[in-house]
């Protein structure tokens, strides 16, 4: 009895994201149909699906372009964010020096930077990658730095009294300790990278979902525009799930939660 309820609960947990998502589309469809809303104001999901099927070739092409830009910027963001996070997290001086600059930089809306990047890098792929990179390295760096800052001073003392170098402490304790923070930040950063890439494509590109949406909008093909929105959302969710799965594999010890067996005290 208890076991069967637990299984249904698990199945429920697996099914609920699908139910909610499909439910939203159903409600959306109903609102459009019942309210008799014109498709240039709000297209129904079925109209969006139709537009997707009709233009699937170009849409997928543009989606690939956006995906490549996003992942390239994201990759750069990981490398730079990790290095920066380690630098900030392991040296007070670097922390004090860079933090105000980083906060200031992160407060600038990246939409405002994209035109400058276009000026420097031309149009198309380069500014899209750069924008994706600039928007996504910050949470990675901050999270890695936070992870390093949470190392218990006692364990550091234990290692230092063994003659461990700063590098030893970083490799044996600092980095493993900050891995949960790092992976958590990847989930945020990948979705931000999409935002960055699409912003730049909207401003200056002849390719990509951002460009597609701008074109569709100027031609008043609202369902096609929404198809672009949905494609970005789907790519965002898929990459998120991918990194969430890696996170679970790599840092299972941090989310040990309830399933960990507790042994009795004493011998």
């Amino acid at each position: 009895m208890a076991i069967s309820t637990r299984i249904t609960r698990r199945q429920m947990e697996m099914a609920i994201p699908w139910i909610v998502t499909i439910g939203i589309f159903v409600v959306w469809e109903l609102v459009v149909v019942i309210g008799n809303i014109q498709s240039f104001v709000l297209p129904s999901p079925s109209a969006i699906a139709q537009a997707f099927v009709q233009f699937r070739g170009p849409i997928m092409g543009h989606a690939m372009f956006t995906l490549v830009n996003t992942l390239s910027g994201f990759g750069l963001g990981i490398v730079f964010g990790l290095l920066l996070g380690v630098a900030i997290g392991s040296s007070r001086l670097v922390y004090n020096g860079l933090y105000p600059v980083l906060i200031g930089f992160n407060s600038i809306p990246k939409v405002a930077i994209a035109p400058i990047l276009v000026l420097w890098l031309g149009i198309g792929q380069a500014p899209a990658i750069a924008t994706a990179f600039l928007i996504c390295f910050f949470p990675i760096a901050v999270n890695v730095a936070t992870g390093l800052a949470t190392v218990e001073p006692e364990i550091e003392d234990v290692l230092r009294s063994l003659g461990a170098s700063k590098l030893d402490i970083l490799m044996k304790i600092g980095l493993p300790r900050s891995m949960p923070y790092f992976f958590a930040s990847l989930k945020v950063a990948i979705t931000l990278a999409f935002v960055g890439a699409v912003i730049s494509e909207t401003i200056a590109s002849n390719e990509g979902i951002g460009f597609l949406m701008l074109q569709a909008s100027s031609q008043f093909r609202i369902p096609l525009m929404f198809a672009g929105v949905v494609v970005i959302a789907v790519m965002g969710v898929v990459t998120y799930v991918f990194f969430a799965a890696i996170e679970r594999r790599m840092t299972g010890w941090a989310t040990r939660g309830q399933q960990g067996t507790q042994f009795a005290t004493g011998s």
Partner: peptide, 14 residues
């Protein structure tokens, strides 16, 4: 040449 142990066992969870 020192070994150290504190009140907090500070075992590395990973």
């Amino acid at each position: 040449i020192v070994g150290m142990a504190f009140q907090n066992p500070t075992m590395l969870p990973w």
